[in-house]
């Protein structure tokens, strides 16, 4: 599904290398987690995959089902099946959440040469999916993320993911700032999308989210590189001993 090879990334504006050769292979239907200390390059990895400006790829590649993502515009990556749930979802004043969703869904359908969803079909689908994430009609009506609580923003990201039905989902610290109940709700939303084909890359600082979204593979990132890869037990190790031991071990 997603194959990242020796990805090296710096900043466009200043001389600073952030990713120093990231390798990552995620197969169909797999759930991988990336953990790592703050500033290790986790968000940068997700932004570069999604095509955010301001970064300069100095080497390596990232392919989605064999197609080079790094050559595509952000919207082409989305249409190809990549989805990023943002660590800090952006507010768009004046634009209704529902309008935003429908515009996005139809833009992707169009790009893929599919028929647009009719207003009726769309509405039915949104309502059903919103309900399971405990997103009420009012939240669908409000402007995108404006005045949403932290939990509401994250649930809204998952709703977008559910509506867009991507092949490869990248979740950047979707658990940060959530209480236990909100985190469970989000995890349930993600688990509902696991169908054996869709793949996930869950970026998190803490192990607790991984109690709810069970990963197949866990990677530890430090200083712009994947320094260790293992099974779910690796996450527990981090939980119990922190990052220091692992970092010392690989140093």
């Amino acid at each position: 599904m997603l194959n990242i090879k020796n990805l090296q990334v710096g900043l466009e504006e200043e001389e600073k290398q952030i990713l120093k050769g990231v390798d990552l292979n995620i197969g169909e239907g797999e759930v991988h987690a990336i953990m790592g200390p703050n500033g290790s390059g986790k968000s940068t990895t997700s932004y570069v995959l999604a095509g955010k400006d301001g970064y300069e790829v100095t080497g390596g590649s990232a392919t989605l089902n064999g197609e080079e993502l790094l050559d595509m515009e952000p919207e082409e990556r989305a249409a190809a099946g990549l989805f990023l749930a943002f660590q800090y979802p952006v507010e768009i004043p004046g634009v209704g959440n529902m309008t935003f969703l429908r515009t996005a869904v139809n833009a992707q359908r169009k790009a893929r040469g599919e028929e647009e969803l009719s207003a009726g079909e769309f509405l039915k689908e949104v309502r059903a999916k919103a309900k399971s994430l405990k997103i009420d009609a009012d939240m669908l009506k409000r402007p995108v993320n404006v005045g949403f609580s932290g939990g509401e923003k994250k649930r809204n990201e998952i709703l977008q993911m559910a509506m867009l039905e991507p092949k490869m989902c990248v979740l950047d610290e979707t658990d940060s700032g959530l209480d236990v109940d909100a985190m469970k709700l989000v995890a349930e939303g993600v688990n509902a999308l696991r169908d054996g084909k869709r793949s996930f890359l869950v970026i998190t600082h803490y192990q607790r989210l991984l109690d709810h979204i069970k990963p197949d593979v866990v990677h530890i990132m430090a200083d712009g590189k994947i320094v260790k890869t293992g099974g779910p037990e690796l996450a527990l190790e981090v939980e119990n001993n922190g990052y220091a031991d692992i970092l010392a071990e690989v140093a």
Partner: peptide
């Protein structure tokens, strides 16, 4: 027009002009 807003829209599949139109229409909503 905020780059982060445009990137957010584009990462959801809208092209740049659609994204600008959406953000500007939001600005004019009232």
């Amino acid at each position: 027009v905020d780059d982060d807003q445009l990137f957010y829209c584009r990462s959801r599949g809208m092209d740049e002009e659609e994204a600008v139109a959406l953000v500007v229409n939001g600005f004019c909503k009232e």
